[in-house]
Design a protein around this nucleic acid. Structure first.
Length: 797
RNA sequence: GGGCCCAUGGUCUAGUGGCUAUGACGUCUCCCUUACACGGAGAAGGCCGCCGGUUCGAGUCCGGCUGGGCCCACCA
């Protein structure tokens, strides 16, 4: 057995194994194998920057589980992909190349975008490899690739065939900055300061005071509303009011949804300020007055305000109102505003043609599907259910952008939808034509929302669009790992596609990670300046240490990032190295020969080992890697290092007095327990365990701990009597150590007499020799009920 | 306003109703014992948020309160 170098060089080791695993295809999925498949619906990270600390946290969690199942003998299907067709990537291209997609020729922008993605991808993926992800990186998918375009378009065609998508002109949430429609799930609530303005509308000779935060929408006003029970406004029933500055007449209508105590109890309905406006517009069949352009400016119908931004218009209109004496007051307020999560721009509502996936009519089925999935932790299911229950809009999947997967759709002049044949996919209607169709066609310009593609990750990874037999075999997949922020998007959309295409939930389990917070428990963000880069952490402490930290909190819990916890990880790596180095030194002459008899202490060790195997297997099995980690951790530091290694030193150092077989017994148990500990730690700390394994246990260069068998629990090694002996032994050792510590003497100080209670005699007899050695006791006696020791002189140097 | 989660020594945390409440970091004392000082042996430090209830027994179950976090709604 080779000796380990004195120190562990994590940088060299991690670099070496990262390359070796790739070269040896250690984690490649075996398509020919008969082993049961364990399939993971890996999140494809959004290509919009570098891996952040939250990524390293949740990706580590799923990798623990992947590695565990691989060692348990499963054929682990663990693909890797990147999500690079969405608005986030689009914006990254605009930012890094300093261009504006909308002001470029479509072809030019697309080729620039594709080129940029290709430039970024290799470096982007590298971070995940460095973290020690055991994905199959041989053929990563990209959501903008042709194969994925084909699958996504096929998915669209199938939904169309089933009548689950539709196109409609309707008010839809719109981002004026990105100039595209967005979905409800892409909203973010932000508290903003604004003003609550009391404005005078004239109704005949009467002044009506209307409170609004959005005076710039006055030209879009199409009605005034009051509550039917509001005493103040009963006389207005059926009358009209004149909109200040703009002069058009609008009806005054009573509606129960109006809150009497808000503002003046009189509210204006504009097309469109918010969801309420849209509902009233529909309900009372009010006219449409469009005043906002797609890039968030006032349009030509607003006269002198045309061309100004909404903010400029707001101020200008307020000034004009004031000059006319129509602005009574303007009070500052703070109120929540929906903004686009990607760019922080206020969301507007524009009446446009969009494609929608019908989800509102299928809420029950989508909620029921959640019952077929095991949620880890279970309460995350509640979040999903509440989101689905409270949905207000169908899923808008069309985006008015250049970059993305095109809708495979044309329209006739009569507005009929023309679709291609499946064999034609992938297709771009702007440059292609549907097979066998004559006549004039209008191509769809829009692209498909990136979530409408990433919601198909199980299908994409398993080759659904190419009729790969793996799809039938492995769908539903075993597990979806993800963080809790995208339950309402990715989890929800993927479940929707599973139900719509295959009539079932897309996975058996879902494991949901929490968030990484700063040391004070605050969210990390660039604006707060409290962001930690995982690249820096790995550079300083190694990927194993970072992973060890990530294993410190249970699934679903948010975890504050504290450097000291990573340091604890680095210490554990170091300890594991040194303990292994020591063990391998003691095993230098071990040839595998079995001892004639195992000593009680060694039986104790092996019996304790079985317990740890059993418990950690069960906890990993139930996705509780944090519990598994702490079990193994405590066992390793305490039972193995502090006690067992100390106890067997004497037998290994002094075979002449203790006997060759006593040494062999220790070596046997040591060899076995070290191997087990390495394996139990392997999912958490893949690099250092692989490095040690390669010295001590690997059969050849390609033999990896990560494809070795998970330790089997062996009932026959459970030994009640040996455990009692060993436990009594460690108890006495602790007592002696305490006494020596209290006496401020070195632990090697001899004990002239170790007087033990008679009750312990039976348990201690079998381990007496080890006890003597480890406590450095000269005489052991059994008398009375008390444990007493007499210390000798400390040896001089 | 609705919902979900959380509340344990200075900090972070384990804890499936039952013997002296886990561990880590920090603090203090001692020990450089031929794997490791990134180590070892110890010590101090807790009305387990508050109030009730169930129970022979509650950190653990139930109800209420208080304080945090998150999600959703509220945008007139």
């Amino acid at each position: 057995m080779k000796e380990l170098p004195k120190t562990y060089d994590f940088k060299a080791s991690e670099r070496k194994w990262k390359e070796a695993w790739e070269a040896n295809k250690t984690y490649a999925f075996d398509r020919k194998s008969n082993k049961p498949v364990y399939s993971i619906d890996t999140p494809p990270p959004t290509v919009s920057g570098k891996m952040h600390i939250g990524h390293s946290f949740s990706y580590a969690h799923e990798d623990f589980i992947a590695r565990f199942h691989r060692m348990r003998g499963k054929n682990v299907f663990y693909p890797f992909g990147t999500d690079d067709n969405g608005l986030a990537t689009d914006r990254l291209v605009e930012k890094t190349k300093k261009v504006k997609a909308k002001s470029m020729k479509r072809e030019d922008y697309l080729s620039l975008a594709h080129r940029t993605v290709q430039e970024i991808l290799p470096g982007f993926i590298e971070d995940w490899k460095t973290l020690g992800m055991s994905c199959d990186f041989t053929n990563p998918y990209s959501t903008i690739s042709e194969a994925v375009q084909k699958a996504s378009q096929k998915g669209f065609l199938e939904l169309h065939k089933k009548g689950l998508v539709y196109r409609k002109e309707t008010p839809v949430s719109w981002c004026p900055h990105c100039q595209t429609a967005i979905a409800q799930a892409e909203f973010e609530n932000v508290d903003m300061t604004s003003h609550f303005n009391d404005i005078i509308f004239k109704s005949g000779a009467e002044d009506l005071i209307v409170a609004t935060t959005r005076p710039e929408l006055l030209p879009a006003c199409v009605g005034l509303f009051y509550h039917p029970a509001d005493e103040r406004y009963q006389h207005l029933k059926g009358s009209f009011a004149k909109v200040p500055l703009f002069g058009h007449e609008v009806p005054i209508i009573a509606d129960e949804t109006v809150a009497m105590d808000k503002g003046t109890g009189l509210m204006m309905c504009c097309t469109f300020g918010d969801k309420e406006d849209i509902e009233k517009w529909h309900k009372y069949d009010l006219p449409l007055r469009v005043v906002i352009t797609k890039d968030g400016r006032m349009n030509e119908t607003t006269g002198t305000y045309a061309g100004t931004t909404l903010k400029e218009a707001r101020n200008a209109i307020k000034e004009d109102l004031e000059r006319e004496g129509l602005l009574i007051s303007s009070k500052p307020i703070t109120h929540p505003v929906n903004v686009h999560e990607r760019c922080g721009t206020d969301i507007e509502f524009l009446n446009t043609y969009q494609w929608f996936v019908n989800v509102l009519d299928h809420k029950q089925a989508l909620i029921k599907a959640a019952d077929d999935i095991d949620w880890h932790p279970p309460h995350m299911k509640t979040r999903y259910v509440h989101w689905v229950e409270n949905l207000n809009w169908d899923w808008c999947i069309s985006r008015q952008r250049h970059f993305g997967i095109p809708f495979p759709v044309w329209y006739t002049n009569d507005g009929d939808v023309i679709l291609p044949r499946e064999e034609q996919l992938p297709i771009d209607p702007l440059t292609d034509r549907p097979a066998g169709h004559q006549g004039e066609l209008i191509p769809e310009h829009d692209v498909i929302d990136t979530w409408a593609t990433s919601s198909l990750t199980p299908q994409l990874a398993l080759g659904w669009a190419d009729n790969n037999p793996l799809f039938k075999k492995a769908f539903p997949m075993d597990v979806r790992p993800q963080a809790h922020d995208i339950i309402r998007t990715w989890a929800f959309y993927t479940i929707t596609r599973g139900v719509y295409h295959e009539k079932k939930a897309p996975w058996k389990h879902i494991m949901i990670s929490g968030f990484v917070l700063d040391p004070k428990g605050n969210k990390m963000s660039k604006s707060r300046g409290n962001v930690i880069n995982p690249q820096d952490v790995m550079d300083k402490y190694g990927a194993d240490a970072l992973r060890y930290w990530a294993a410190g909190s249970k699934l679903g819990d948010d975890q504050p990032y504290m450097e000291k916890d990573v340091q604890t990880g680095a210490k554990t790596v170091n300890k594991l190295w040194n303990a292994s180095r020591f063990a391998l030194m003691q095993l230098a002459d071990y040839d595998g020969t079995k001892p004639k008899a195992l000593l009680a202490t060694d039986k104790w060790m092996l019996s304790k080992l079985q317990r740890i195997i059993k418990e950690s297997t069960a906890t990993y099995e139930s996705y509780e890697y944090a519990k598994a980690k702490s079990l193994v951790d405590n066992f390793f530091w305490n039972t193995f290092c502090d006690h067992y290694l100390e106890i067997i030193k004497d037998r290994i150092y002094n075979p002449s007095t203790r006997g060759e077989d006593a040494k062999r017994s220790a070596q046997h148990a040591l060899h076995r327990s070290l191997q087990t500990i390495l394996k139990l730690f392997a999912p958490i700390m893949p690099y250092v365990t692989e490095e040690i394994y390669s010295y001590a246990y690997a059969k050849d260069e390609k033999d990896s701990i990560h494809t070795s068998d998970w330790p089997a629990y062996e009932e026959k090694l459970m030994d009640e009597a040996a455990e009692q002996s060993g436990d009594a032994l460690t108890e006495v050792v602790n007592h002696v150590r305490r006494k020596k510590s209290e006496a401020n003497v070195s632990l090697k100080t001899p004990v002239t007499t170790l007087a033990l209670p008679r009750a312990l005699q039976k348990a201690l007899r079998p381990v007496e020799e080890d006890l003597k050695a480890v406590t450095n006791a000269q005489t052991i006696t059994y008398e009375g009920d008390e444990l007493a020791i007499e210390l000798g002189e400390q040896e001089k140097k």
